[in-house]
Design a protein around this nucleic acid. Sequence first.
RNA 1: GCUCCUGUGGUGUAGUCCGGCUAAGCAUACUGCCCUCUCAAGGCAGUGAUCCCGGGUUCAAAUCCCGGCGGGAGCACCA
Length: 514
Amino acid sequence: MADVNKLSIESQREELESNYAELLIVKPKQERTGLPPLEGAEQGNVITRFPPEPNGYPHIGHAKASIIDEEYAKMYGGKLILRFDDTNPEKERLEYYAAIKVGLDWLDVKYDLIKNTSDDMEIIHRKGKELIDLGHAYVCTCNKETISKNRREMISCKCRAGNLDQNNTRWNKMFDKFKPGEAIVRFRGDMSSENTVMRDPTLFRIIDESHPIHKDKYRVWPNYDFAVAVEDSIDGITHAFRTKEYELRTELYYTLLDKLNMRKPRMLEFSRLEFEGMPVSKRVLKPLVEEGKVSGFDDPRLPTLEGLRRKGIVPEAIRKFVLSLGFTKSDTLPPFETLESFNRKIIDPTSVRLFIVFDPVKLTVINNNLTEIEISNHPQNEMGKRRVTIDGNFYISGNDAKPLKIGDEVRLLELYNIKVTKIGPEMEGEITGTGYKSEIPKIQWVSRKNPVNIEVLISNVLFINDQFNENSLEVKQAITEQYYLELNVGSQIQFVRFGYCRKDSANQAIYTHK
RNA sequence: GCUCCUGUGGUGUAGUCCGGCUAAGCAUACUGCCCUCUCAAGGCAGUGAUCCCGGGUUCAAAUCCCGGCGGGAGCACCA
C-alpha cells in the first residue's frame, strides 16, 4: 500500500490501466433528475395515496403532498388514490371535498381512484372489534384529564384491566347508551413506552355531530391513527407519505397492522412546506378571513391554491418548485422567490406586454404628427399587435417625470424621442427624432385619448415576526391602455418596466412578481 | 422535561446508504458584460461552502465511528 502511494497519480493510473482496467470503470453514480428512488418499489406495482381531510381549502402544503404522491405513482407506472380522510364530522364540510378536487384539478394532479374513508366505516368498526376481541384494545371510561395525566405518568387505569366481556358490553354501549366523552376505545399499547403515542392511544371516540355525507348513520368514529392504518392497508397502498410531524406515529401505525395481521405499506415522511410569513394553518387563517383582514380564502396574500392562482402563480411552476425541494426531512423555509422565478419563466412567453402609468403626470408633445400606432404584444413571440390612438397627449409615470429637467431627452417607447420643454404637472416636449437611441432613458406612456383606470393589488408578506402585517396589501391606482379591456380575466400581463400581473377583473389587476 | 427527527454557500437542494472519480454539482439570489425600443425573458462570466463543532478510523472522509452543539416536531376523545 505504502509503495503504491509513493507512485505519482499518473503512474498509479497507468499501473491500474495496464493490469486492472476493470477497476477504472466508473460506478453508475450518475445524477438523479427527479425524486429519489423508492425503496421496495416495483415498476407497475406502486400505489400511493393523497389523504386530505376535507376541513378547509387546499393550500401549498396539499400541493406538495399530492404532487409527490402523483409523481411517485407516475415514476413507477402505478396508481394514485385520492382518499378523503373524513372521520371527524365536527370539522368536515361538503364544500371542502369539492374545493380539494378543484384544487387538484387546477394543479393537474390526476388520481386513478377517489374514495372516502367514511365509506369504509363498516370495515373499520369490524377491525376495531377484532382488536378488542384479540385483547389488543379496550374501552376506557376514564375522563379526559385522568387519561392524559396517566399517560404522562405512565400509569394504567382500571379499564385497561377489564376483561373481554366488559369491553364488549362497553363497545356496544358506545353505539347507543354512552354519551360523547364517556367512553373511548384505546389501544393496549405500552404505558411505559418512551414514545408517548404508544401509551394506549385513542382508537375510537363518540361524535354525535352530523357527518357531511353519512349524516347520523355513525357515532363511533375512528381517529386518524386507526383509520389511516386500516385504510392504507386495505387500499393496497405500497408507499404512504406524510409530513414529518407524524413521525412518532409510525410505530403505532405498524404495530396496529401487526396486531390485526394486516399487510403493511411503507411509510415515509417529508418536511412540511410553508413560506416565511405565509401561514398555512386554519387556526391562523380562519380568523383573518372572519375579521376581514384578508378578503377571503382566495386572497392573493394567502398560500392557498386559490390565493396563489389569483396572484398569477401557475400550476406548472408549483410542480417544478415542489420537485426542486426534493424529498427531505430537513426543516426549512423555502424561498418564495424560487417559485416566482419558475413562474416568471413559464408565463413570460405568453404574457402580453402593456404600458402602465402610476402617479400620472400629463405630457403634451407639441409637434406630434401621429394619430395611431401599432405595437407588438410580445417582443419575441407572435402574440399579435394592438392599435393605439395617439393625439400627442400622454400620461407618464410620476417616477419617470420627476428627474426630468428642461432640455432632457427621453424616448417614449415604441414612439419617438422628445426633448422636455416644460416641466411640472403639465409637461411639454417636442419630438427630436424617431430613431431608436439606446443612450437616453426609455419610458412607457399611456395615451390620454382612451385611458383605462385600474387598481393594482400588490401583496406583501402577511406576517412579520408573527405579527399581522397591516401593510400586507398595497392598492395602487394606475392608468393603462385600452387594450387591457380586451384581455380575458385571468390572463397574464407584463406591464413593461413594472412587472407581471394577472388580470383579475376589468378594473383590477393583481401583481404577480417582478 | 422526555422522545424522535434534522444540520452542505444568503436561500433551497444534489452528492452521504456502497469513503477516492468534484477541495463539492444544480437552482435561486446578488454583481458585471452581451442581446433587447422593458428594470422581463435569453446568452456569458463572476461573487459566495475549511460540507455545525471536536476527536477517531483510513494511504484517503461531506461521506464510516464516538462525543458535543444548534434547529424543528410530538407528548389531544384533530388530522
